[in-house]
Structures are given as structure tokens and as C-alpha cells.
Computed example of a mutant assay.
Amino acid sequence: MSHLTDQQLAALKNALEERRQELEQHFKDNDEENSLLGESLRVSTGELSTVDNHPADAGTETFERSRDLGINNALRDELEDIEAALQRMEEGTYGICVISKEEIPYERLEAIPYTPYAVEHVPGRESADERPVEEQVMTPPPSGAGQTRQEHSGRFDDADAWDSVEDYGSASSPVPLPGHDSDDQDS
């Protein structure tokens, strides 16, 4: 017995089928034969030689091909997930987390209709909550680190740059001539 109503299941199935059609149309319009992503750089660009081009032109073309292949791989994975979700609908296991066997809330299925996981069991989610491994081997800074340490270190610090330069005046203040005191400037 599913926790989803017939209307909810119908709406989700409709959303899955619409997205499947969009993705199938994308692959029909942009398959490897038409986009020439599987061909050499020379064939895909239509150039007789890549020698006469600036190296950045080849770099741009390589980047664009790489990006397109990455997008196609992500869309192909999404299409496979949609097919699996439709299969789970046929089997009557749709909306049940494949790990915990708990019901997936309708709101989550509305957002990601092909998901087989409850939020708590999404693979890779646990690593997002953990702190970086580097923190385990880092030592805390010495006591007094920060402003107090910088003031007493005896070294020039970029944070003090304006204070040092300001002693020489600014564009709007009079600047004493070399060898003259600032009191002597009016003369």
C-alpha cells in the first residue's frame, strides 16, 4: 500500500514521462553523430588544419566539447534515473527509500520525482556534514595571534601599510620638501 494517492502518483508519473520525452528529444537532436563529439577536433570544427588557428581557439573548442560531453553524461544519468523510477512505479515500490525502506515524502518526490532516496540516505550526504580532514592535523595558532602579535613582531605588515604611507602626507595635504621642516613650508 503506497502512501501516495492516485492523483499524486499520476502527477508524478506525468512529470517523469514529460522529462523523459524532453531528454530523449535532446539526445535525438544532439546525438554524437550530429554533434560530432566523438570525432577529432579537426572534423568537429570543420577546419582543414588546426595549425593556422590561435592556440586559444583550440583551447576554447576543447573546453566546449568537454562541457557538452559532461552535460550529456549528466542528462544520460538523469534519463536512466527516470527509467528506474518508472520501473519502480510499475513494481509498486515507487516512493519508498531503497536504503531504509521508509516512505519518501511527497514534497521531495515533487522536487525530484526520480529520487530513490529519502533525504537522510542520499549517498555522499554524510560527507557534506563533516569537517575537512585537514582540521584533524592542523595545530592551533600561537597565543596572541592576530593584531597583538603583528604589532609586536617587528616586521612590516600589509595591514599597517596605510599608516606608514600616511606619515608622508596625502594628495590633499602639503608635503614638506626634502631637507626642510614641515614648519618651514610656508616660507
Rank of each mutant, 00 (worst) to 15 (best):
R42C: 04
D186L: 02
G95A: 07
R125N: 07
A118C: 15
R65W: 00
G146M: 01
G38C: 00
E135N: 08
L9Q: 13
G46C: 14
D183H: 11
I104C: 06
C97N: 11
R42P: 07
N72F: 00
A161Q: 03
R42A: 12
Y106N: 10
K101N: 15
E107D: 15
D57S: 09
Q147V: 11
Q21A: 14
E17D: 10
A56L: 12
L9Y: 06
N53D: 08
E39N: 12
F156N: 09
V175E: 10
R88D: 14
D158N: 14
P132N: 06
M1W: 10
G144V: 00
R42H: 06
Q21F: 07
E64R: 04
F156V: 10
I104F: 14
G154D: 05
E83P: 07
A145C: 04
P132L: 04
T115S: 11
G38A: 01
E64V: 12
E107W: 03
A111M: 06
P105L: 07
P105A: 07
D52N: 13
S172C: 08
N53Y: 12
I104V: 13
E24L: 15
P178T: 13
Q87K: 15
S35W: 02
E103N: 14
E134M: 14
D129L: 14
P132R: 06
R108C: 01
H121D: 15
E151G: 07
G144L: 00
E103H: 13
A56Q: 09
D160N: 12
G124N: 03
S127Y: 12
E102H: 09
P105E: 06
H3C: 06
C97F: 12
P174M: 07
E47R: 11
G92V: 06
R125L: 13
